[in-house]
């Protein structure tokens, strides 16, 4: 943890209350941290995105197919294998976010979608771009687009409507 130069600087002192006991002292205390985050068994998915491939997981036991990958099946516990998802999907549900967590505020408004694929048992969360906000609806056919400059985050893929992309 790194403490910034602002650490310990009083930013607010309430003087309106009676006496020292009633006046809380509030300081600004900055902290930040770098993690060494491993994608571990999910790593092939993120490598796949950097190569323009969207990979899901198929169970080697019960054949359940996951749009969002996991190395072991939630249904039967068997290991899964990597399998490419279909080239197109549809909007299962969506929302337009006008606010967000602090680091996403600059991107608002943005569209979140859960994507459904034929013959796949689960969904995939992504952003939808390249469509007027009022034209989005459940069932809209969409397909993935991949970043040319991968950051090895799940945002290296997003979706666009088929007839516009």
């Amino acid at each position: 943890m790194k403490h910034s130069e602002t650490t310990g600087k009083p930013v607010e002192k309430r003087q309106e209350t009676n006496g020292p006991e009633g006046a809380p002292l509030i300081i600004q205390d900055h902290y930040e941290i770098d993690y060494r985050h491993s994608y571990a068994q999910d790593s092939p998915f993120f490598v796949g995105l950097s190569e323009g491939r969207l990979l899901g997981s198929r169970c080697t036991g019960c054949r359940y197919m996951y749009a969002t990958p996991r190395a072991h099946c939630m249904e039967c516990g068997a290991p899964t294998t990597w399998e490419a998802l279909p080239p197109t999907g549809r909007v299962h549900t969506f929302t337009v976010c006008y606010y967000g967590g602090e680091s996403f505020l600059k991107e608002t408004p943005f569209l979140l979608v859960l994507v459904e694929f034929d013959q796949v048992n689960t969904l995939f969360l992504s952003r939808l771009k390249g469509v007027p906000l009022e034209e989005v609806h459940i069932g809209l056919p969409i397909r993935p687009q991949f970043s040319d400059t991968p950051t090895y985050k799940v945002t290296d893929v997003w979706f666009e409507p088929i007839d516009r992309s």
Binding site: C97, Y99, G100, G101, S103, F104, V113, L125, V154
Partner: peptide, 11 residues
């Protein structure tokens, strides 16, 4: 992708 619970509940 969004980092926002209100977005999840909205979907």
């Amino acid at each position: 992708v969004g980092g926002f619970y209100s977005g999840y509940y909205a979907m």
